[in-house]
Simulated scan of single mutants.
Amino acid sequence: MLWPTNYTKLASATMFTLFFAGATFAPKRMVNGENIQHFLQRHYCNAYKYLASRLRHLDAVIGFEVMNEPHNGFIGLKDLKAYHPTETLGPR
Protein backbone atom coordinates (compact mmCIF):
# COMPACT_ATOMS: atom_id res chain seq x y z
CA MET A 1 0.00 0.00 0.00
CA LEU A 2 1.26 3.42 -0.96
CA TRP A 3 -1.01 6.08 0.56
CA PRO A 4 -0.72 8.77 -2.15
CA THR A 5 -1.89 6.30 -4.79
CA ASN A 6 -4.74 4.62 -2.92
CA TYR A 7 -7.44 6.52 -4.78
CA THR A 8 -6.06 5.25 -8.09
CA LYS A 9 -6.42 1.58 -7.10
CA LEU A 10 -8.95 -0.54 -9.00
CA ALA A 11 -11.84 -0.22 -6.54
CA SER A 12 -11.37 3.48 -5.89
CA ALA A 13 -10.78 4.40 -9.55
CA THR A 14 -13.82 2.35 -10.55
CA MET A 15 -16.02 4.12 -8.00
CA PHE A 16 -14.79 7.57 -9.08
CA THR A 17 -15.52 6.61 -12.69
CA LEU A 18 -19.00 5.35 -11.82
CA PHE A 19 -19.72 8.40 -9.64
CA PHE A 20 -18.72 10.97 -12.28
CA ALA A 21 -19.50 9.11 -15.51
CA GLY A 22 -21.44 5.95 -14.79
CA ALA A 23 -24.21 6.90 -17.20
CA THR A 24 -21.62 7.09 -19.99
CA PHE A 25 -19.27 4.22 -19.13
CA ALA A 26 -21.74 1.84 -17.48
CA PRO A 27 -25.17 2.77 -18.87
CA LYS A 28 -26.65 -0.64 -18.02
CA ARG A 29 -25.31 -0.76 -14.44
CA MET A 30 -28.47 -0.19 -12.40
CA VAL A 31 -29.34 -0.13 -8.72
CA ASN A 32 -33.05 -0.66 -8.15
CA GLY A 33 -33.76 0.51 -11.70
CA GLU A 34 -31.61 3.66 -11.47
CA ASN A 35 -28.30 4.16 -13.26
CA ILE A 36 -25.35 3.77 -10.90
CA GLN A 37 -24.11 7.35 -11.47
CA HIS A 38 -27.46 8.87 -10.57
CA PHE A 39 -27.86 6.49 -7.63
CA LEU A 40 -24.44 7.35 -6.20
CA GLN A 41 -24.79 11.10 -6.75
CA ARG A 42 -28.30 11.19 -5.30
CA HIS A 43 -27.25 9.35 -2.16
CA TYR A 44 -24.09 11.45 -1.84
CA CYS A 45 -26.07 14.70 -2.07
CA ASN A 46 -28.71 13.39 0.32
CA ALA A 47 -26.02 12.50 2.87
CA TYR A 48 -24.78 16.10 2.82
CA LYS A 49 -28.33 17.41 2.94
CA TYR A 50 -28.89 15.34 6.08
CA LEU A 51 -25.57 16.49 7.57
CA ALA A 52 -26.48 20.13 6.91
CA SER A 53 -29.87 19.66 8.55
CA ARG A 54 -28.18 18.23 11.66
CA LEU A 55 -25.58 21.01 11.88
CA ARG A 56 -27.67 24.04 10.96
CA HIS A 57 -28.15 25.09 14.59
CA LEU A 58 -24.39 25.42 15.20
CA ASP A 59 -23.20 29.02 14.79
CA ALA A 60 -19.55 28.00 14.35
CA VAL A 61 -20.26 25.85 11.29
CA ILE A 62 -20.32 27.96 8.14
CA GLY A 63 -19.79 25.13 5.65
CA PHE A 64 -18.01 21.90 4.92
CA GLU A 65 -15.92 20.47 2.13
CA VAL A 66 -17.99 18.08 0.08
CA MET A 67 -15.22 16.02 -1.51
CA ASN A 68 -11.57 15.77 -0.60
CA GLU A 69 -9.26 14.92 -3.49
CA PRO A 70 -11.74 13.86 -6.15
CA HIS A 71 -10.17 11.87 -8.94
CA ASN A 72 -11.30 11.17 -12.49
CA GLY A 73 -10.69 7.44 -12.18
CA PHE A 74 -10.52 5.89 -15.64
CA ILE A 75 -12.16 8.85 -17.40
CA GLY A 76 -10.00 10.17 -20.21
CA LEU A 77 -7.72 7.16 -20.49
CA LYS A 78 -7.08 5.98 -24.02
CA ASP A 79 -5.78 2.58 -22.93
CA LEU A 80 -6.54 0.82 -19.65
CA LYS A 81 -3.39 -1.25 -20.13
CA ALA A 82 -1.36 1.96 -19.86
CA TYR A 83 -2.88 2.84 -16.48
CA HIS A 84 -0.27 2.60 -13.73
CA PRO A 85 -1.91 3.09 -10.31
CA THR A 86 1.44 3.39 -8.51
CA GLU A 87 2.61 6.11 -10.88
CA THR A 88 -0.59 8.12 -11.27
CA LEU A 89 -0.40 10.37 -8.23
CA GLY A 90 -3.07 12.89 -9.08
CA PRO A 91 -5.78 13.98 -11.49
CA ARG A 92 -4.71 14.08 -15.10
Rank of each mutant, 00 (worst) to 15 (best):
Tyr7Phe: 09
Arg29Phe: 14
Phe25Pro: 01
Leu51Asp: 05
Leu18Asn: 02
Arg56Leu: 08
Leu2Arg: 14
Asn72Ile: 05
Leu40Gly: 01
Asn68Asp: 05
Pro4Glu: 03
Phe39Glu: 00
Ser53Val: 07
Gly90Gln: 03
Lys49Leu: 13
Gln37Ser: 09
Ala52Ser: 10
Tyr7Val: 05
Tyr83Lys: 05
Met1His: 13
Leu80Val: 12
Thr24Ile: 11
Asp59Gln: 11
Trp3Ser: 02
Asn68Pro: 10
Glu34Phe: 06
Asn46Val: 04
Arg56Tyr: 12
Phe39Arg: 05
Gln37Met: 11
Ser53Ala: 13
Ala26Trp: 07
Met30Asp: 09
Lys49Pro: 00
Thr17Cys: 03
Leu58Gly: 04
Val66Tyr: 12
Leu58Thr: 11
Ala11Ser: 15
Ile36His: 05
Ile75Pro: 04
Gly76Pro: 04
Ala52Met: 07
Leu55Asn: 11
Ala60Asn: 12
Ala13Cys: 10
Leu80Gln: 01
Arg56Asp: 08
Lys9Asn: 12
Pro70Arg: 02
Asn72Met: 07
Phe39Lys: 01
Met30Arg: 14
Thr24Tyr: 09
Glu69Thr: 11
Trp3Leu: 13
Ala82Cys: 10
Arg92Phe: 07
Ala52Cys: 14
Glu69Lys: 14
Thr14Ile: 08
Pro91Phe: 00
Glu34Pro: 02
Asn72Gly: 03
Leu18Glu: 01
Arg42Gly: 10
Phe74Asp: 01
Phe20Met: 06
His43Pro: 06
Leu18Cys: 03
Cys45Phe: 14
Ile75Ser: 08
Ser12Arg: 06
Leu10Thr: 12
Pro70Met: 02
Asn68Lys: 11
Gly63Tyr: 11
Leu80Phe: 15
Tyr44Met: 08
Thr5Gly: 06
Thr88Pro: 00
Lys9Gln: 13
Ser12Phe: 06
Leu80Lys: 14
Thr14Cys: 08
Ser12Lys: 07
Leu55Ile: 12
Arg42Ala: 11
Thr86His: 13
Gly73Gln: 00
Gly33Gln: 05
Arg54Ile: 10
Asp59Trp: 08
Asn72Lys: 14
Leu10Glu: 09
Ala82Val: 06
Tyr50Ser: 07
Ala23Tyr: 01
Lys28Ile: 08
Ala13Trp: 03
Val61Tyr: 10
Thr8Gln: 08
Tyr48Ile: 07
Thr17Ile: 01
Ala26Gly: 03
His57Pro: 00
Asn6Leu: 08
Met1Lys: 15
Pro4Gln: 06
Leu10Asp: 06
Tyr83Cys: 02
Asn6Ile: 11
Thr5Asn: 13
Arg54Cys: 12
Asn35Glu: 02
Asn46His: 14
Arg29Glu: 07
Pro85His: 01
Pro27Lys: 04
Phe20Cys: 04
Asn6Thr: 15
Ala26Ser: 11
Leu58Lys: 15
Thr86Ala: 02
Glu69Pro: 04
Gln41Pro: 06
Glu87Ser: 09
Arg29Leu: 13
Leu89Cys: 10
